[in-house]
Amino acid sequence: MSSALIATGLCKQFGDFVAVKDLSLRVCAGEVVGVLGPNGAGKTTTLRMLAGILTPTCGTVEIDGIPLADQPLEAKRRIGFLSGDTQLYRRLTPREMLDYFGRLYEVPEPSRTTRVKELITQLDMESFADRPCGALSSGQKQRANIARAFLHDPGLLILDEPTATLDVWSGQFIVEAIRREKARGRAILFSTHIMSEVEYLCDRIYLVHGGRIVEEGTTAEIIRRSGCSNLTDTFLNLARQAGAGVSKEASA
């Protein structure tokens, strides 16, 4: 499988605070990779660096073989980014918002209008596509948001806790949408706190703590290596061990 994303030796420092250090990961086409970690572990910072929102202090990112630092615009064209807290322009309708992002991603007409219509149908948005985004429910907003991320047909989807603020039904809708995209051969990097989503969706997992990767592998491999019976216990156990390691490192 070809690598849609390769990150090598990523670091990010905000003043004196080191948020991410020496982090490397890889996502291949048709693969869903999970990034797990407690709050403050550096997941969001990592995903933002991978999406080109933040500039890494050191390290490199390649999207589909294109170096993000040198060709940011070309690389960003290949990324669809979505986070749980991303909001929509409240005075635009989802249709207008999708058309706007279609222009920004330089999707030419008439395929832009066709693509917008297609996504509205696929994501079951017909009933609210022409209502202002400010008047939509959280689930409807997230559907519109996911449509925005899928709009330019990116090879790589970076999803930062996309179901965090949703109810079970809306969350399930997003999860199924992710599975469909995986089936279409997209590479998906996905962070979440919901272990059932990880077990259901992810081919491989990176466990992040203190800005570093402390464990990686398939779900089954990680559970087996930890000696725990399920993913939740494995996660808690690894997080505790990593936390102790980080504390020791800090005190040393």
Partner: peptide, 14 residues
């Protein structure tokens, strides 16, 4: 405040 700036920053724009 409305958390919409991020979508713009990850778009292919300078």
């Amino acid at each position: 405040e409305r958390n919409t700036l991020q979508t713009l920053l990850c778009a292919p724009l300078t």
